[in-house]
């Protein structure tokens, strides 16, 4: 795996310039529709897995699915049963600046939201206010195949104290990480590292970031990220449109010249 994953996407409940990414290869999902499933293993969040799934749907429609220049759409999948490892094991084998994903928790496709109560590495007492850890833990080249969102399920977690609207924005923030975004340094962005008093819509950093990773390709979209280091697309299109104009005007000038010459 060429990608070097550098993220540990915590969300902290206390108090952060442009969008950033959570990996060094600008990885993104290849498909336009990314399905988000929720594991049925939460015990301390105060909300059921089906309610979390409902929040996924709300977060998608309120935030990420509103971006007109992005091809990516999040879809709420279903409540699923997963191995107990997803609850008990650490997310990263090492946490020193970058994350080496625990291969036991590799997500086969899409996004999996799980609860996690591992209190030694993931959510120790000193970090009980951390709401979740998210990592695209199945990356092939520059394609995210699967991503894991692990919500802090300690008995004294702070997620359970949030309002539903806050929970929706927290989950939407984590889904931003799951699809490849890092944090934003500005408070108006959903990808700011902590909650803000009011979160109603995306900020410019969010919109620019998701557009960068998932650019719309109408009318020729093929479902893959296209990083174009030129203005060739627009220029080519303009040439196509202008060709008839140039042709007809040249033809007219030539005919006029021939007529005057004769």
């Amino acid at each position: 795996m060429r990608s070097l994953i550098t993220l540990l996407c915590f969300l902290h409940v206390s108090s952060s310039f442009a969008f950033s990414l959570n990996n060094t290869v600008s990885a993104s999902f290849s498909q336009n529709e990314v399905v988000v499933n929720v594991a049925d293993n939460c015990t301390n969040l105060g909300v059921s897995s089906s309610e979390i799934l409902s929040m996924v749907s709300d977060g998608a429609s309120q935030f990420w699915n509103t971006v007109s220049t992005s091809r990516m759409r999040l879809r709420a999948g279903s409540v699923v049963t997963v191995d107990s490892k997803f609850y008990n094991e650490k997310i990263c084998n090492s946490n020193t600046g970058s994350c080496e994903p625990n291969t036991n928790l590799t997500v086969g496709s899409g996004v999996l939201i799980t609860c996690n109560g591992e209190t030694t590495t993931n959510f120790p007492a000193s970090q009980r206010t951390v709401l979740a850890i998210t990592i695209p833990n199945n990356i092939s080249g520059t394609t995210i195949v699967g991503a894991l969102v692990a919500i802090n399920d300690r008995s004294d977690n702070v997620f359970q104290d949030k309002s539903r609207a806050q929970m929706v924005s927290i989950i939407a923030h984590e889904l931003g990480h799951a699809v490849g975004l890092g944090h934003s340094p500005v408070t108006d962005s959903l990808m700011y590292y902590t909650l803000v008093p009011v979160r109603d819509s995306l900020g410019w950093d969010d919109i620019d970031g998701i557009t960068y990773l998932y650019p719309k390709e109408q009318p020729f979209g093929c479902g893959t990220i296209s990083q174009v280091d030129s203005k060739a697309a627009g220029f080519a299109f303009m040439l196509i449109l202008l060709f008839p104009l140039i042709w007809f005007q040249l033809r007219k000038l030539v005919l006029r010249f021939l007529h005057s010459a004769s």
Binding site: T6, L7, A18, F19, S20, L21, N22, N23, T24, S26, T69, S70, G182, H183, T211, Y212, P215, K216, E217, Q218, F220, I225, S226, Q227, V228, D229, S230, K231, A233, G234
Partner: peptide, 11 residues
Amino acid sequence: FPMPDAAVVSQ
């Protein structure tokens, strides 16, 4: 956090 290092055009 890494920053993007290319240009992308959304159409």
